[in-house]
């Protein structure tokens, strides 16, 4: 098993290398010119050219790629063209809100979706099942920003129950922190809940169709909760898998959610950086998000060995 874990960890290295290559070449090709943005509206073309030379934007591709790769390996993601701050420190400043949002969404989604999926599987074929699954399809189909604005309007402006926007660091207390995260998490969680609920339902049905469960049923366990607890344990692998894969949705959705709710996180940093063509920041962020995504799915893979003793490596 240890061998398997090591192999999996090692297998992420070439993946990350390829990601790095893709990310660098993508943004190298970008036509926008940060130099003229920096120079401002009153700058002369000479100003722009001088700024470009100062930033090293006029050097050839390979020189810049190898320099960049070397920095990455040393944990240096470069310096933002706009803020003149290290990209790593920009990420550090922004990571708490995004981490909070993602974690709260994750917990909320699992807490809502798994019971819903189990319920649907339990009542399979009934209107309750169909209702839940219909909701899941709708959850997939309504864009996250629409949900966001509806929630903000209803719960923050009309009812005045929760703050409209912003983020309070957890250091200032749990309640202020969570207050700011409830609406964004629900908005962001919609699609994730739909995904997890569906997988839970189908994984449960798969397990319930297994011979040993049929036997247990025949022995009189029937539709008891105990049976479902056992079945859920056995359905854990696909559920955990989808939670891992769904991280991509969560990361993508965070970009939009953070814009809607003015959360100063990595998603907003990404949008700002792209609009301003701040190459080092875009590169650093895409690389970091991909790294997190790979890491989460690595953990998911490793978790199989604990979740399902039948899987041997």
């Amino acid at each position: 098993m240890l061998g398997y874990v090591l192999r999996r960890i090692l297998s992420t290295v070439p993946v990350m290398a390829i990601v790095a290559m893709i990310v660098f070449s993508l943004l190298y090709l970008a036509p926008g010119d940060p130099a003229s943005v920096i120079a401002g509206d009153q700058a002369t073309p000479e100003d722009v050219a001088r700024i470009r030379a100062n930033l090293g934007l006029d050097r050839p591709f390979l020189v810049r790629f190898f320099e960049w790769s070397g920095q990455i390996v040393r944990g240096d993601l470069g310096t933002s063209i706009f803020t003149n701050l290290p990209v790593t420190s920009l990420i550090k400043q922004r990571i708490e809100p995004t981490l909070s949002l993602t974690l709260v969404t994750l917990i909320l989604s699992v807490l809502v979706a798994v019971p819903l999926g189990v319920l649907a599987a339990w009542k399979v074929g009934t209107w309750l099942d169909r209702g839940i699954m219909a909701l899941a399809v709708v959850g997939f189909s309504v864009p996250v920003f629409v949900v966001g604005y509806v929630l903000a309007y209803l719960f923050a402006l009309v009812l005045d129950w929760l703050p409209v926007q912003g983020y309070t660091p957890i250091a200032q207390g749990f309640w202020p922190w969570i207050q700011n995260l409830i609406l964004p998490s629900i908005a962001l969680g919609g699609i994730y809940i739909a995904l997890i609920a569906r997988i839970t339902r189908s994984a449960m049905l798969d397990v319930l169709a297994q011979d040993y469960i049929r036997t247990a049923r025949a022995k009189g366990l029937g539709q008891t909760p105990t049976l479902f607890v056992h079945a859920l344990k056995n359905a854990a692998v696909p559920i955990v898998t989808v939670i891992g894969l769904g991280m991509a949705l969560l990361i993508g959705g965070a970009v939009v959610t953070e814009s809607v709710f003015a959360i100063p996180g990595l998603g907003r940093l990404t949008v700002d950086a792209i609009l301003r063509r701040d190459y080092p920041v875009i590169q650093g962020l895409v690389l970091m998000f991909s790294f997190v995504y790979v890491l989460v799915n690595l953990l998911v893979d490793i978790s199989y060995t604990f979740l399902d003793p039948r899987i041997k490596y």
């Binding site: 993946v15 893709i22 990361i251 993508g252 895409v286």
Partner: peptide, 24 residues
């Protein structure tokens, strides 16, 4: 497949946004 692995490790929306930043 290694190349596909790399591409799939970039969240799709981010990849699309980064690509759109490349072009008009």
């Amino acid at each position: 497949m290694r190349f596909m692995d790399g591409m799939m490790s970039i969240p799709p929306i981010l990849l699309a946004v980064a690509l759109m930043a490349l072009t008009r």
